[in-house]
Amino acid sequence: MSEIQNYETPNSVSEAADILAKGDVTILAGGTDLMVQVDAGRVEYKSTLMNIRRVEGLRGISDEGDHLRVGALTTITDLLESDLIAEHGTILTEAADAFASVQIRNAGTIGGNISNASPAGDTLVPLVVLNAEVELASKPNGSIVTRTIPIKDYFTGPGKTKKEDSELLVAVIIPKPAAGFVSTFDKFGSRPALDISTVSVGLGGVLKDGALTDVRVAFGAVAPVPLKATATEAATEGKKLDEATIDAIAATAKDEVNPIDDVRATAWYRKEMIESSMKKVLRHVSK
């Protein structure tokens, strides 16, 4: 068993970045992934455990004119209850609603969900659809440096991201979508609560005269990272969403994914469910 040598509770991003700069740090936010993984022996604590929950300014959602800024410590419940999110990113509200259970939603954070980088992470697909970016902070030479990375490029594999060990995820930037933008999320799991997505589908676009433009489609749990579905987007772009078109788009979606078998589902079933979920979200937005 790994031993935690230091327990740190920084009060600011700057302090947190200093601690990270020293190296060998495990970051703790809500702990709903981390504790479970450590208990199961899948993850070992590094020598420093840094609890970031006291870091000022990391929790909350603010309106920054052309975008929303969502602090890394914003909980899933905060997302669910936010009017700003409901107005500019319904898809994220829906994902928060389908997320785990009340207890987990109260503890789990958006930063944790992104950093855990599970292909089944429920905020990831909506964030891809919303063209979100993540903001990272570090102190390479004694002063704070931040950079942003589009979320669609952020994930490199299950549990893996472009974030360096010395960086802290501080916020998610969500550009406000254009007028007429609609979006929706469908989480497919076998039960209504406390289920990990077997597959998930996110759809967004500007709806006019029964057709979507600026279409964005993303799939969860069908690839090592949340999948931006460019072929399905192209198949949807500008088309009038009648039943035949919806069927054709759903068939494209099914072909676009190449999932795996695991305890939750076979690859075959995942492809089938992508097709069925795709139909569901298309019908939903076109209504």
Partner: peptide, 26 residues
């Protein structure tokens, strides 16, 4: 819902995430 999956003699669902007990809304 409950299905204790066994693959080549090994239980592959030894937790409440994968071994699905009925939850309250069901």
């Amino acid at each position: 819902t409950e299905d204790l999956l066994v693959k080549e003699g090994r239980v592959i669902t030894p937790n409440f995430r994968d071994y699905k007990m009925v939850t309250a809304p069901e």
